[in-house]
Design a protein around this nucleic acid. Structure first.
Length: 210
DNA sequence: ATGACGATTTACT
DNA sequence: GTAAATCGTCATA
């Protein structure tokens, strides 16, 4: 992977499969966020979770649930789905597959690549020092570091102000670990499905450890 | 009009 | 480890 191709956008055709197939291929990719003042923030994705759509009880699209909040999750692969939860946090997903299917990959953690000082500033709470995993080691933290909110819901990830690029993908499958998804409510067998993927032993991967 | 509920994070014991 | 914070959304009435 050459230095230049790292910043080439990922083609939509690469995002048209099932979310559990695509999720591990997103590990190592970059998210390139351009702020209004021109500042560029870059992170490398290190942890994701697949949500399978209508037949996945943990999914916002379970049983065909379709409301204004989740509408963008039914968009074409390569669309961004951002939701607001717990009254204070945003989480972002990359939609996969054809339109109207409702599959997506939740971005759970990333490592800072460029613009780290700015991201730290975005993350600073009450003047405390940031510890391990405090920059983008969780879905809400990642969104806060990059300044992502519902205003970007439905955005096309091939274009600024948020682009998914080739980055430094993980080619060695042995470097990928998987386990059950985090934070789910009661959802039967879906609770144990191993749809969480992360780069093995990466320090930014969120808790609980995989 | 109302109430229950989060694909979480943080602070505190 | 446990618990509080905090509010948009949606099902129910």
């Amino acid at each position: 992977m050459t230095r230049l191709s790292r910043f080439k956008p990922v083609a939509r055709s690469r995002l048209q499969g099932n979310s559990d197939d695509i999720a591990p291929m997103l590990l190592g990719r970059f998210l390139v966020r351009t702020l209004d003042d021109g500042t560029r923030l870059v992170v490398r994705i290190v942890e994701v979770e697949a949500y399978l759509g209508m037949h996945d009880r943990a999914s916002h699209c379970y049983n065909g649930h379709r409301t204004p909040r989740v509408e963008s999750m039914y968009g074409v692969g390569g669309t961004l789905y951002v939701y607001f939860t717990y009254g204070m946090h945003h989480c972002m997903n990359i939609v996969t597959g054809p339109r109207d299917v409702g599959q997506a990959v939740l971005l759970r953690a990333a490592e800072g690549v460029e613009g780290i000082a700015e991201m730290v500033s975005n993350r600073k709470r009450s003047g405390k020092r940031l510890g391990p995993r405090d920059l983008a080691g969780g879905p809400g933290k990642l969104c806060q570091a990059l300044g992502i909110d519902r205003g970007l819901d439905g955005h096309d990830l091939r274009h600024p102000p948020l682009v998914l690029t080739q980055g430094e993908p993980v080619t060695d499958e042995a470097q990928i670990v998987r386990g059950p998804r985090v934070g789910l409510g009661e959802c039967g067998d879906a609770k144990g499905w191993p749809l969480r993927f992360a780069i093995k032993d990466h320090p930014e991967v969120s808790r609980p450890r995989i």
